[in-house]
Design a protein around this nucleic acid. Sequence first.
DNA 1: ATGTGACTTAGAGTCCGTT
DNA 2: AAACGGACTCTAAGTCACA
Lengths: 77, 77
Amino acid sequence: MKRSNRQSESARARFARNLKTLRIQLGLSQEALAANAGLHRTYIGSIERAERNVSIDNMEHLATALNVDIIDLLRVQ
Amino acid sequence: MKRSNRQSESARARFARNLKTLRIQLGLSQEALAANAGLHRTYIGSIERAERNVSIDNMEHLATALNVDIIDLLRVQ
DNA sequence: ATGTGACTTAGAGTCCGTT
DNA sequence: AAACGGACTCTAAGTCACA
């Protein structure tokens, strides 16, 4: 998908993509991130595939575990 | 609360406050916003009181109904 | 180390009302 | 117009076995 078309992408899909990008940038496995965020390994995978409708509390837990602001996980990058 | 201390505020609380601020700026009632966002009147009130753990899909619906980006509802302002 | 289907349960979200 | 409560229904949260 072109960057210029990403504006219409759902927030869920953006969150999924950014979460995975940031996790990999930090060299973390889904399992390691799950541990840091206090969530389950398979749940992280499911979020990254944009299958889950994540809540704001878990979004914040994930942002904290990745050491970023929650906004960074929603921004188009 | 001082602006300088708001960084430690939860994302849920920020979302609640910004939602209410933007809704009032547009001169909408909770009922009218609920209709626009396809949600229930009492649920909007509950979110604005930061009692609910809103999902990303509904956050986006609310942002759309307020004609802003979802990020604007999470940013400290 | 991750994807996936299936599952249980906590809580999201609705609908009725009263204050 | 909004807060709040009770009683719902539906879905996100959270886990597991296995590929």
